[in-house]
Write a protein that binds this DNA or RNA. Sequence first.
DNA 1: GCCTGGCACTCGGCCGCAGTGAGTGCCAAG
DNA 2: CTTGGCACTCACTGCGGCCGAGTGCCAGGC
Lengths: 339, 339
Amino acid sequence: MLEDRRLEVLRAIVEDFVLSNEPVGSKALAERHSLGVSPATVRNDMSALEEEGYITQPHTSAGRIPTDKGYRLFVDRLSGVKPLSRAERRAIQSFLEGAVDLDDVVRRSVRLLAQLTRQVAVVQYPSLSSSSVRHIEVVTLGPRRMLMVMITDTGRVEQRIIDSLTPVDDEIAGELRATLNCALAGQRLADAPEVVATLSDQTRPELRPCLATMTGVVLESLAERPEERLAMAGTANLTRASVDFADSLRSILEALEEQVVLMKLIGSARETGTVTVRIGRETDVDALRTTAVVATGYGRGPFALGGMGVVGPMRMDYPWTMAAVRAVAKYVGELLGAD
Amino acid sequence: MLEDRRLEVLRAIVEDFVLSNEPVGSKALAERHSLGVSPATVRNDMSALEEEGYITQPHTSAGRIPTDKGYRLFVDRLSGVKPLSRAERRAIQSFLEGAVDLDDVVRRSVRLLAQLTRQVAVVQYPSLSSSSVRHIEVVTLGPRRMLMVMITDTGRVEQRIIDSLTPVDDEIAGELRATLNCALAGQRLADAPEVVATLSDQTRPELRPCLATMTGVVLESLAERPEERLAMAGTANLTRASVDFADSLRSILEALEEQVVLMKLIGSARETGTVTVRIGRETDVDALRTTAVVATGYGRGPFALGGMGVVGPMRMDYPWTMAAVRAVAKYVGELLGAD
DNA sequence: GCCTGGCACTCGGCCGCAGTGAGTGCCAAG
DNA sequence: CTTGGCACTCACTGCGGCCGAGTGCCAGGC
C-alpha cells in the first residue's frame, strides 16, 4: 500500500509533466491530485522513487521529471489505453474511406495519424512478403527488352525492366506470363521461393535464362530491400515539443530520414499483435534518445501487412497516442484486407 | 562607375553575409574585399544602397544585411553560375547511375540534391502529361473486375481497378487491350484526349461502357490531380540555418508538407528552360517569406518531364546552388530521357 | 565633385549583482 | 508512518554599467 501510493505519485508526476512540461514539485502534486497526504509525505515518496531511478531532478531545488525508466513503468503498469470517442472514430473512418488506391490509403493514413497525435507519423507500405500475388504481367518493350509488372492483392505494384540476352517476342512474353502466373498467382509471396525453385525444370530450355531473371526479380524484391517504402508526415510537429528539444532537432530529423532506421523501429512492432512503445534509449538509436516511438502492425491479424506508428518526445500522452495508433491501424487494416 | 562600385559593394555584402551570417560593416568590407576605397566611402555607398532598398540594418549600430530586393539584384546581375568541378560532376553521375527503376531514380536524385546543396531538396515525379504511353495492359481479376495498368516511357506506372457492369472474360480484356494500345501506344499523353474521343465509335457497342471507363481513367490521371507525386529530402538541413530561423521552422515545415504549395513552386520552374530563383516573398507563400527556392525542369528540352529544386534560407550561396540544381537536373533528364 | 580621416553618437550584447521563490532535505513531534 | 516547521540551495529575473562595432556627419584634400 505504501508501494501503491508511490506508484500513484509516479503516475501523477508523469501526467502533470506531460501537461505542463515543467518539473513537478511535491506541493503542487499534493494539491492537484487528491492523494490524501501532505507534501512532506509526497517528498519522501519522491525521494524513494528517485533512489530507484524512476524520476530525476534537472537540478537541485527543482521539481522532478520522469526518467526513461519512469515512463516505462507508467506505460507498463499505470496506464490503460484511453478509448477514442465516437466522434474520433468516425473522423478516422471518413478521412480514410475516400481513398482511391494504395498510395492514397497510405498517404491519408500517415497524414491522419500525424494530425491526430500531433506527432511525426510513419506508415510502412504493405510488405511484399506478407502479400499475395494477384497477377504478373510480362510485356515486350523491344527486341531484347521486357517489362515485368507484379501486382499484389494489397494493390502494390512492382515493376522492373529486364534485358534479355536472347531475342524475345510477344509469344515468348505470353508464355513467360502464363508460366509465372500459373505458378505464383494467389500464392503468398513468402512462399514464393519454394514455388519458384521447381519452375525452371518445367520450362522450355530457351526460356530459362529469362525466367530465371524474372523469378530473380520476384525473390529480390521480396528480400525486403532496406529501402522498403514508407511514408512520413508531421515533421513540423517536432518543433512543438519544447525548446531544449531544438538542439537535438537536427539529429532527430536526420535519423528520421534514414529509412533503414525507421523501418527497424516501426517494423519491429509489426509482428507483435499489440501496440508497442519504445522509450528513449530503448529505441537503440542515439539521435532518438530523447524521443519515444509508439508503433503497431496493421492488417490481417497475425500476418501484419506492415507497421505504422508515431515518433514524438518522451513527454507524450501515451494512453491517448497508443489508442490513436491502434485505431488508425485497425481501420487501415480493414481497408486493405477487404480489398 | 560610381554605380559600378555600388554594385560591387552589394555583391561583397551578399557574399560576406552568406558566409558569416552576420551583418557586415563598412570596415570589414573595405578590408576583406579589395575595393580600393576607404570604409568611409563604402559607408556612403551603403547608405545609398539602403535608400534604394537593397540592404537594411537589423538595428542602428549594426552592419547591413541584404533585403529580398538585394538578393534579387545579386542573382540577376551580379552572379554567374559557378561551374561544378569535374569531381563533383562525376560524383553526381556515379550516385545516380546505379538506379534500378523510376522510384529509385527520383529518390536518389532528391537525396543527392539535398546532400550536395545542404538544403531541402524536392523532386517531382515525371508528369504524366509530358510522358508518352508505352503500353497499356488489361487483365481480368474476376467476372466483373478488371485491372488496367498504364506504363509510360519514363517508367511510371498507373494502375486502376475497374468494375464492369457487364461480365468480362479474357477475350474481352484482350480486345480492350488491343484497342487501347493501338490508339494510345507511343502517343504523348497530352494528346490523349483527342485520340480517345474518336475511339468509342470504332468499337463494338457492348464494349463501349468498359472502354469509356478506361479512357476516363487515362484522362483523369492525366488531369494532374493536385496530389501529383513528389519526393523530398534534407529537411534536417533547415536547422542548419541560424537560430532565429527556428521560430519560423515550424511554419516552414508545415508549408513543405503541403504538396500543393510545393508543386506550384517547383512546377512553375518546369516550363522555363533555365534555373529560376524565387526569393522571399516572391514565393507567394507567407510561411516561406524567409526562404528562397531554386528550381528547374528536367528532361526533354522544351517538354520538361518534371521539376526539381531546393528550398533554403534566403542567405544561400546562389551561384553554387543554381549550378548544383542545374547539373543534377541535367543528369536526371538524360537518365530518364534515354530510358 | 568625390574621396578620406576624424569624431561624436547609438545601441545591442555581455558581465556582475542582488533579490526572489519554488522546491528540497532533515528533524522532531504526533 | 505521517506531518508541520525550518534552513538551505539554486535557477531565474531584472538592473546598471561597460564595451565595442558600426554608423552618420563634417571638414579638409586630391
